[in-house]
């Protein structure tokens, strides 16, 4: 007997006079948006879920922006429109284009390190709908400011995105949205390869909030403009 069915039996036994419409409908499996990095797509069983919030967290140089660029590249190359709410104005269009991003399909909102404005912009964009991917980049926001974003704001974002087929990805230093996110990915850097120049960087990703924690490693090469 499943846990939901057991609870139902217990409640009905305790309250026999009431015919409880206690039917727990299983949520359908979400549609997924591929990340574009094979190791991570395998790890997440296909990508990040649409109509949900995904948190991707890690320290500086842990591979967050590599995933961000890959997500944009993957979505825009399929003809989808993306929004990047860039709290600290750190997005580099040139390297994103090198990763395969179609910049004409990207709406970039530069918030000048104002977290409140970024949050308002994210809310407006999610409410407007029509984007395949919405990225809320809090990667450079200090932990205290990110923690100050109220749980009610995260719930509002989650509730708004549930009605759409957009995938909402939040990048930050630590997980902030708590129960509002459907998937959490934690990143860390595991190594760096140097030859005459910085050749590649190795990262490790760990998923949270799935039935069990899983890990995967991936590597990103440095783009050499002179090559």
């Amino acid at each position: 007997m499943s846990a939901a069915a057991a609870i139902r039996t217990q409640v009905q036994a305790a309250l026999p006079r009431f015919d409880l419409p206690l039917v727990i409908t299983p949520r359908p499996a979400p549609e997924l948006l591929a990340i574009g990095i094979p190791a991570l797509d395998t790890l997440t069983q296909g990508g990040i879920p649409r109509g949900s919030m995904t948190e991707i967290a890690g320290e500086a140089s842990s591979g967050r922006t590599t995933i961000l660029h890959s997500l944009i590249a993957r979505a825009t190359s399929q003809g989808e429109y993306c929004t990047l709410i860039d709290t600290h104005d750190a997005f580099d269009p040139a390297t994103a284009a090198e990763c395969g991003a179609v910049l004409s399909h990207l709406l970039w909102i530069r918030c000048g390190a104002n977290t409140e404005n970024a949050l308002k912009a994210a809310d407006r964009i999610v409410q407007a709908g029509g984007f395949g991917l919405v990225i809320f980049d809090l990667s450079d926001t200090d932990m205290l400011s990110a923690r100050r974003i109220s749980l009610a704001s995260w719930f509002r974002l989650r509730h708004a995105v549930e009605k759409t087929s957009s995938a909402l990805a939040v990048f930050s230093r630590q997980f902030n949205a708590r129960s509002c996110s459907r998937l959490q990915i934690e990143l860390r850097r595991t190594g760096t390869t140097w030859s005459t120049h910085l050749r590649s960087v190795a990262f490790e990703a760990e998923t949270r909030k799935y039935q069990f924690s899983r890990r995967a490693a991936f590597e990103a090469q440095r783009f050499d403009p002179l090559a």
């Binding site: 190359s77 104005d89 990103a220 090469q221 440095r222």
Partner: peptide
């Protein structure tokens, strides 16, 4: 206002740069 062509993504994963502006 810009019309861009969508191209299929290929090639290795690139390390991304976060700019300080």
């Amino acid at each position: 206002s810009v019309v861009g062509e969508t191209v299929s993504q290929s090639g290795p994963v690139r390390a991304a740069l976060r700019r300080f502006r």
